[in-house]
Design a protein around this nucleic acid. Structure first.
Lengths: 221, 221
DNA sequence: ATAGCTGAATTGTGATCACAAATCCCATGC
DNA sequence: GCATGGGATTTGTGATCACAATTCAGCTAT
């Protein structure tokens, strides 16, 4: 209807996001951070309305997200967040257990002190989210802790694949969190940080692997 | 791989494919099998015309495929097949080297003789494609050889991730093939089959890993 | 010859519409 | 009480359109 907003004025120039991109990013974040429970239904018109666009960008975003496994399309085209079977959860966990130690190991060679400091800050925020019993913030900081490390691996394809896995687990992680009311921060984060400081590859791989599998082991429905 | 439409009727019943699905599958196959060279440009209207649909389903397919890394969107929205850097190729190869031994190992426990026979048949077709110097058929049978094995692993998420990697490599594999005119079938396929017959997990992992890295090592531009 | 410029054609984007299928709701009947 | 049937509503699909941005061809000026 009205798309006349070309404002090159502001110096803090953010790239002119297309409508599709805004919707995609918004939905993706909601899903990955566990803001939507498993099985939550969405409609194209509803998505469009909530982002202030027509259904065309909404449809494209949904296609894209369902290609990444972040959304499920029923045979009739209905859109929901995925409800994962136990087998699927275990499989996704073992993929994480395969990829994350590899990414961590690659990052280790390039890690510096500033990186570890940054991870500590994020880990503190994570601990605070646990105390506040804030599931979304907990998931967000937890993933950011890992992503900050893996970004250092300079392996964008592998990180992209991993984020796909995180996406698929988003709604389930939320369900997990509310099921077992977590009271302590992830215990292995400290081990990860120590292995990084020590430059110990084997210890880092082990710490990452157990951090990943530990968290998802309790998911048995 | 995606919608499992339960059709209890005729076994040869093809599900009523939506226009979007037909376009998606068609394009995906062209890309994965190396029918398009790297950097090949596509247009939404052109895709629509060649599949007999409007640009709407074409656009959705392109979005989906670019989410999977099978297509690249320029900043202005132009669509091309990806031209991978050497670093990217190496990274994708190492992902294959990580995932494929794992899938093979999982399949090994469930493998039976009929499976190995089927793989031999595919491998023969692969050798014939080499003799005929048919790049598309070579790539197709090569991937089918691997997929036939991995299907047995009963790990759909992991296989899905791997197919994403294959997709990204499709156009590049075609360029590779035409660059070094292959004259012999992949030598490690025999080792894979023997390890399967022997039930030797370590040998299978090694054979798969070398088959994967060997094939892509020559890709240095 | 080559670099630069201008107008035409091409191309992606997002909105809207018609339509059919799926879903929901509620009254009816057992 | 519970299943059932039918009509209204919701919902996804695909086509089409207007529009802006990009791209390209051909011409001019140096």
């Amino acid at each position: 209807m009205q798309k006349s907003v070309l404002r090159p004025s502001v110096p803090s120039e953010t790239a002119p996001l297309s409508a599709h991109d805004r919707v995609y990013r918004g939905l993706r974040q909601q899903i990955m951070h566990g803001e939507l429970p498993p099985g939550h239904a969405l409609t194209l018109r509803g998505i469009g309305k909530s982002f202030g666009v027509s259904m065309t960008p909404a449809r494209e975003s949904v296609r894209r997200l369902s290609a990444e496994g972040a959304l499920t399309l029923s045979a009739s085209g209905r859109v929901t967040t995925p409800e994962l079977s136990n087998e699927r959860i275990e499989e996704l966990a073992s993929i994480r257990a395969l990829l994350e130690p590899e990414l961590g190991s690659r990052a280790l060679r390039r890690a510096h002190l500033a990186l570890i400091d940054r991870m500590e800050v994020i880990n503190d925020a994570n601990a605070r989210a646990v105390n506040r019993r804030d599931p979304v913030e907990y998931i967000r900081t937890n993933l950011e802790f890992h992503r900050t490390l893996y970004l250092r691996a300079q392996s964008p394809a592998m990180l992209g694949l991993l984020e796909t896995v995180w996406l698929q687990l988003g709604p389930t992680m939320r369900a997990l969190y509310t099921r077992l009311q977590r009271t302590t921060a992830p215990p292995h984060h400290r081990m990860i940080l120590e292995a990084l400081r020590a430059g110990d590859d084997a210890a880092l791989r082990l710490a990452l692997r157990t951090d990943v599998t530990q968290g998802l082991r309790h998911l048995q429905a």
